[in-house]
Design a protein around this nucleic acid. Structure first.
Lengths: 245, 245
DNA sequence: AACTGATTGCGTCCACTGTACGCGATCGCG
DNA sequence: CGCGATCGCGTACAGTGGACGCAATCAGTT
């Protein structure tokens, strides 16, 4: 058995754990902690110090116990990640009674907000994993904004993925422009300065972008492009299929 | 000093290492290995068994030495990731003498090809890091396809990021639908089957997508949407700037 | 030709992961 | 009232990245 297979297996287990309903029977001592409490602690650590500071030890310390005690609640590290992600995602944002374009924008903006609150979710979401109830609820809500659209199922999924990808990219950028990560941007800048003749377009693009200040419309720019593209497709299909007015 | 800061610092060091030019002086024993050889070995391991099987130990074993010997060539794990990524990316694809739309599509398709060859680059690219020479060359080439477009620098960068994000999402999907990761998809399917009433739209969207077979046009679908959106913007700006009616 | 000091190969050691396992304490249910 | 499932948690271990130090090597200088 390869390690790769082990990893895959552990991710499946993590999913099973995430979807397991709470068992009611309790023939034993009262649990001293709760899954939610553990998730909260882990999330707090991740928010404060980053995802890879989240270790069984740290979480346990924060709860005032030892790491091995946690294994009574969480089968392993993978499962901890899973509940962290699903907890942090929370309930999806839904904008009722608006057109698909506004609804989809609101949905994606909601994803953005959530991800900005917990920048580490980017890492977890973009890691191979089975979605939990919360993540699926987001998906469901996103699909809900598109019921009217003449798109195939796969296309709708692709569209959501595209929007999520865009949001996550931006969160990553924003996050890494914070201290102390801004050294990253700084090092890139110095590299570009040194080899401006090797990468002229890149250098000038970045310079130009800096002049614009920290454009907060990058998010909107991406949405607009994608949704314009969708609108074009919808117009085309609407014209050819239903009622050419 | 927080660990988070340490991480950031190590990434900056990784960048410096990546951009360092080979020093010529050699007052000592001949190096028995080369950076390229090490990178190759690491890449081979990642290709065969996945990224997290790439450990100093494994790489050393593959080269027939011990891990500590490697530290003479590579300052640390972060730097190993950096050279793996930059080596695997290789030289950018450029389509000369075609319109921006075709050129940009070809560029993105090139990214897709490279990423499919080494699925683990997705993980590395989407991790916070300073780009190496290879990655920057890709960026430069991508920007090169857009010289004619009436877009601001920041917008061009956003556009490339958007396309890359889309490509990476798809690579991830393809990759995780391979054995043994396909259990992931399988577990999602069984979840959806069980709770179809909770996630009706998601369930039907996936069912529909499966009916379409493994649509290989997901990539193209995303490109089309985005580029249609860009075309719309270009048309608008072209009209208002050159010949205002 | 001898010397010298930078540089290489690599063994030892350490902090710290995640986690298997086992033991005693607890307490709901029959 | 006791049976046995469940809890808290200590011990133990394999495997990680990495600091450090020492001996062997060899390019330059003398």
């Amino acid at each position: 058995m390869t390690e790769g297979e082990v990893d895959a297996a552990s991710r499946v287990e993590a999913a099973a754990f995430l979807w397991a309903q709470p068992s009611g029977r309790k023939p034993g001592p009262k649990p001293r902690y709760t899954l939610d409490g553990i998730a909260e602690a882990a999330i707090a650590i991740a928010d404060e110090s980053g995802l890879d500071e989240v270790t069984m030890q740290r979480v346990a310390e924060r709860l005032g116990t030892t790491k091995m005690a946690l294994y009574r609640y969480v089968p392993g590290r993978a499962e901890l990640d899973a509940i962290m992600l699903d907890t942090a995602l929370g309930a999806p944002v839904v904008a009722e009674g608006v057109q698909w374009r506004a609804a989809l924008t609101a949905w994606a903006a909601g994803v953005h907000t959530r991800a900005m609150t917990h920048p580490w979710v980017v890492e977890l979401v973009q890691r191979p994993h089975t979605p939990g109830p919360g993540e699926l609820a987001w998906f469901e809500a996103g699909l809900g904004t598109m019921v009217e659209l003449p798109l195939r199922g796969g296309e709708k999924l692709d569209l959501l993925t595209l929007l999520v990808g865009h949001v996550m990219s931006l969160v990553r950028q924003r996050d890494s422009s914070r201290a102390p990560e801004q050294q990253l941007a700084a090092s890139l800048a110095s590299i570009l300065a040194t080899r401006a003749e090797l990468y002229p377009r890149t250098a000038s693009a970045f310079a130009e972008a800096d002049d614009d200040g920290a454009r907060d419309d990058a998010l909107r720019f991406g949405f607009e492009r994608v949704l314009d593209g969708v609108a074009a497709l919808v117009a085309e299909r609407g014209a050819s299929s239903s009622s050419p007015s």
